[in-house]
Design a binder for these strands. Sequence first.
DNA 1: GATACATAATTGACATGTCATCCATCTGAA
DNA 2: TTCAGATGGATGACATGTCAATTATGTATC
Lengths: 163, 163
Amino acid sequence: MTENTTRPRPRRQLPTADELRIWRDFIETAEALRSELASRLQSESSLSPGDYAVMLALSEAPGRRMRSSDLAATIGWERSRLSHHLGRMERRGLIRREECATDSRGAEVVLDPTGAEAFRGATVPHLRAVRELFVDALTSEQLLAAAEVAGAIRARLGPSSDV
Amino acid sequence: MTENTTRPRPRRQLPTADELRIWRDFIETAEALRSELASRLQSESSLSPGDYAVMLALSEAPGRRMRSSDLAATIGWERSRLSHHLGRMERRGLIRREECATDSRGAEVVLDPTGAEAFRGATVPHLRAVRELFVDALTSEQLLAAAEVAGAIRARLGPSSDV
DNA sequence: GATACATAATTGACATGTCATCCATCTGAA
DNA sequence: TTCAGATGGATGACATGTCAATTATGTATC
């Protein structure tokens, strides 16, 4: 039909106004959600989302300890970001860094009892907030749709985007 | 049916493992998407997402100028955040601040020609990236579902969350 | 074992965010 | 008019992120 060769097909390259509105709504909502959860976590437990992610990984690791690189890979952070963050957490007594027996370049990050205690206290309120603000905000169809949308975007970002 | 009064109904308060997986997938995907777009914007135009938001609002304002508070409200930032950011943008020559004629406490933010030029150059590649990474990653059903999910979450966050 | 290269982690410089506070000006009421 | 409070905006201190460079150690190869 429209396949005469008169003009190169004008592949629309830019989003329509509707698509842009959805995009902005989507990304701003995700941001608002992240921000609200961070704020609640902070006021309820004096932990940042970064602290929480680090301690969640550590609390699930055998011996509550983990090599720094493995920890970074587990939570998907650059090593330098983790290094800075661990420095701050160490100053607050949440974690300790010990030398690694098998590789003297390496460091092992250990969850301090102080940190374990803080993490334990933070967990339930945080999960309750996730439930309240995300899970309970959606119907079960919407929840599945959210998973599908995330999967599709993740696939487009390429396998490298989180590993 | 289950409405005998024997026990208070055990309202499940925490997310199930499946729900948690979806939650993490959702929030991490949104974060990865934001980060990838920021990185492309930066490398293509030397602008940050913050610069872009500020200049988008200014470029649409009459006279390409806006009171600082109005600008903050338009893009949904705290005033102090905007003030810091404007300082950095002013140093780079992207915007200027002028005294306000009608209220000598006030400042008017003006889009500098340098900034307008940078913004113009950034727009098309940025929108193309939004299309590629978000719009084109989703089927039209998924796009609508994304809008619905965002709406439901936004509603739960309360009307105050973006205004 | 010496040289070259890879890897583990830290560091410094800087951009970005938040929070509390400050300063100047405006506004409304006595 | 004056004074109390509200408002506009800037600032300082600090947490968080990214990037590039640095340090020290491991590994492979001749």
